[in-house]
Nucleic acid binder design. Structure first.
Lengths: 134, 134
DNA sequence: ATAAGGCTTCCAGTTACTGGAAGGTCAAGG
DNA sequence: CCTTGACCTTCCAGTAACTGGAAGCCTTAT
């Protein structure tokens, strides 16, 4: 399977797949006589594994650890769980912060006339600088 | 106020403040005779605004737009309102995406034994059900 | 006078790709 | 057989948004 097909099967771009090989995140694909990379089922699995983890917000370095753990017969599921739970906590924090920003912006937008008059409570609040919220 | 104090007041690093000046995101601070940057209230508020927006996932380019509107005396409050409302929609989207991610991770972590046993549903899920070795 | 720490600039590195140039390969059509 | 276009290859650069470090000047305190 060429890199193009591998890309289709994994949802990654060919560029990204080459990049992952380049940084030794995944084991290099076999080469055919013409120099083309040749992907087999196992390669696709590994790439999909990475694609999914990345999609869930794991860093490439996290993926490196996860792949090592997955490949390691003696790995502890506790290690993996800890990584996942740390990500959950990160996400919770981010969600809370976004909710705060959303409330501020929605509130200001509501107070804003939305006409052509130049005064705007959103920017006024910034100009006055009295508030830590925009 | 030196850049160090400005950093403390805004939660940004001195490096970051210089960087923001470098890319013309904020107006350059006045220089004192010794060449040191001198920050006044207005600078601090501008930096805080940027810091908060950046913290919540707004790009530097987003910040540039908001700051430009602030500087433009002829701006229409409708413009600002529109940007604010678009950001609110962006934030809602982001929150939803994060919630989805959180749900998946939390679910997987819950199913994970978290002991030393080698089988781990998180990794199994990443591999998309395959018990096959990667 | 000297040491510690803050300030300056500039250059390089980071993360995770992405784009593009220059060129080799392959299958189909004329 | 030749061409066309879609692949593939490598390598070099650039992106966002900083961050680290070197070299050197400035300030403050002892």
């Amino acid at each position: 399977m060429n890199i193009g097909q591998a890309a289709e099967h994994t949802g990654l771009s060919a560029k990204t797949i080459r990049y992952y090989e380049d940084i030794d995140l995944v084991t290099p694909a076999r080469r055919r006589d013409n120099g083309y990379r040749d992907y087999v089922e196992r390669d696709i699995h590994m790439l999909r594994f990475v694609a999914r983890a990345r999609d869930l917000g794991f860093s490439v370095e996290d993926c490196r650890v996860l792949l090592a753990l997955y490949d390691d017969k003696g790995r502890k599921s506790a290690d993996v769980k800890e990584i996942a739970l740390r990500r959950v906590a990160d996400i919770d924090e981010k969600i809370e912060a976004l909710k705060g920003m959303r409330a501020t912006l929605a509130h200001l937008a509501e107070k804003c006339h939305g006409d052509d008059r130049p005064d705007c409570p959103i920017l006024d609040e910034f100009a006055e600088g009295g508030s830590e919220r925009i």
